[in-house]
């Protein structure tokens, strides 16, 4: 027997493409704009969200029968805030260098609407295992877009990838810069992320017309 049933596999794969939280559901846009100027930051954010999303979904799913519906949003908020603080403190104690790199991102996770969205839409109505898979899937779907956007913004905006100069040195004019190429300063400011996300949405919808909404 396979480890994951077909339905379980879909929980992970759907959010990567046809039900992507960023390009289809248009959630989590704020953090996608804020932190994608560098590829490294995008990767780190993706990993942090995968952890918080999966754990949070499991915790909420386990508590789904005892959370009073009147205060469920507050309860969800407390769960995600607690997880984020735990991650932050543990990193500070055992991976101090990494925690300094993550800095602001850890706190930003709380504001990610995908997390609250999945708690509300999925974990409150499903068991822990399925919620876990759903959490992983959605966080991966979010992370993939983040990494694609981060890749293009860092490459075109700074001429580097993960901090390594891949296109040459813009000041001493070596590599590609010797031919008169210039970095596009616009790519490192947040509106550029919106344009890159827009292009991804366009490509995705033209490949799969079923995703285009009727007017």
């Amino acid at each position: 027997m396979a480890l994951l049933s077909k339905k379980d596999t879909n929980l992970i794969l759907d959010p990567l493409t046809d039900n992507n939280p960023i390009t289809i559901q248009v959630l989590g846009i704020c953090s996608a704009l804020a932190i994608t100027a560098e590829l490294e930051a995008s990767i780190v954010m993706a990993i942090s969200v995968i952890f918080v999303m999966a754990t949070g979904n499991v915790v909420i799913s386990l508590m789904r029968d005892i959370i009073p519906s009147k205060i469920r949003i507050i309860a969800q908020l407390i769960v995600v805030a607690t997880l984020v603080i735990i991650v932050d403190q543990v990193l500070k104690a055992y991976a101090y260098e990494l925690s300094k790199t993550l800095g602001a991102f850890i706190g930003l996770i709380i504001t990610n609407c995908i997390i609250m969205g999945r708690f509300e839409a999925f974990a409150l109505a499903n068991g822990p295992w399925r919620s876990f898979l759903d959490g992983i899937g959605n966080a991966l779907g979010y992370g993939i877009i983040l990494i694609i956007v981060g890749f293009f913004r860092e490459l075109l905006g700074s001429g580097t990838l993960l901090g390594f100069p891949v296109l040459g040195d813009p000041i001493t004019k070596t590599g590609l810069y010797a031919t008169g190429y210039e970095n596009n300063g616009f790519m490192i400011i947040p509106p550029a992320a919106l344009i890159v996300v827009g292009i991804i949405i366009w490509v995705q919808r033209s490949r799969n017309p079923a995703l285009v909404e009727e007017n």
């Binding site: 932190i35 100027a37 602001a104 706190g107 913004r153 860092e154 490192i188």
Partner: peptide
């Protein structure tokens, strides 16, 4: 120099 929450990449 160090910072608490300046924009990554900027």
């Amino acid at each position: 120099f160090d910072h608490k929450g300046e924009t990554a990449g900027l």
